[in-house]
């Protein structure tokens, strides 16, 4: 039986998907701005952060209204709770992209320190993790969600490798310090984006099965 307020949930779900797609686009564009030294694109990434901020506020507003007026239970209750939490994670992804874009602008004015290999690799993994986490939202595929959570270790590892490599650059040639630090922070931002993708995946498991898998290390090892 269709209810007269079902469209409110459809809009809510659409906003969350739109926010996910926007966040993924931001990560992709921030990376491209960095790799290509494209200052105009970096500026567009910084400006587009408002879209995510506005979507987060819309989603919060819709969720509070729905809980207040429609008294949701079961899947619907989990959907609005998870929607609020996931939108917060996606907004933070946007903030990290802004940080990357600002650093990309500064790095564009300097000669490249090293070819971009590990950072695009990290970014691509983080994008895939975000995409898979959102896929779980659409299809309730908890196997995929758990795979996202397990993949986080891969990004952590690259981040640590980069940290060691960039540290050695700075020791060998202090003139590289500024650029190396910028790259370290970019790497850290990508690592955080992967963390947010993990959070979203965990939230999607809660949505599908009403089970909280946060802080359950045994599930993350596979």
């Amino acid at each position: 039986m269709k209810r007269f307020f079902d469209s409110e949930l459809e809009i809510f779900r659409s906003h969350l998907m739109l926010m996910g797609e926007t966040a993924i686009r931001q990560v992709r564009d921030a990376l491209k701005a960095l790799v290509d030294g494209d200052v105009a694109l970096a500026d567009r990434v910084i400006a587009a952060d408002d879209e995510l901020d506005n979507l987060e506020m819309s989603i919060d507003d819709e969720a509070i209204r729905y809980m207040n007026l429609r008294a949701p239970v079961a899947t619907e209750l989990r959907l609005v709770i998870v929607g609020m939490k996931a939108s917060h994670d996606l907004e933070r992804v946007g903030d990290e992209c802004t940080t990357i874009a600002k650093r990309a602008v500064r790095l564009a004015a300097e000669p490249p320190l090293k070819p971009y290999v590990d950072i695009p690799r990290m970014a691509n993994i983080a994008i895939e993790m975000l995409r898979d986490a959102l896929d779980c939202f659409l299809h309730g595929d908890t196997d995929k969600a758990l795979a996202v959570v397990r993949r986080d270790a891969e990004v952590d590892l690259i981040n640590k490798q980069l940290y060691r490599e960039l540290s050695s650059f700075m020791i060998e040639n202090p003139a590289t310090t500024t650029r190396a630090l910028e790259l370290m922070f970019i790497s850290k931002s990508l690592e955080r984006i992967a963390d947010h993708a993990c959070n979203i995946a965990e939230e999607m498991v809660f949505l599908a099965q009403a089970t909280d898998i946060r802080h359950r290390e045994e599930l993350k090892k596979g």
Binding site: D6, L9, E10, I11, R13, S14, H15, M17, L18, E21, T75, E76, L79, L134, F137, L138, H139, G140, D141, T142, D143, L146, V205, L207, A208, Q209, T211, I213, L219
Partner: peptide
């Protein structure tokens, strides 16, 4: 929103029971 991903109009999220926590 017309370009957003396709929606499940039942508004209940489809649930996979393949993996059970």
């Amino acid at each position: 929103l017309s370009n957003a991903a396709p929606m499940d109009t039942s508004s209940a999220t489809p649930v996979s029971r393949a993996f059970k926590v």
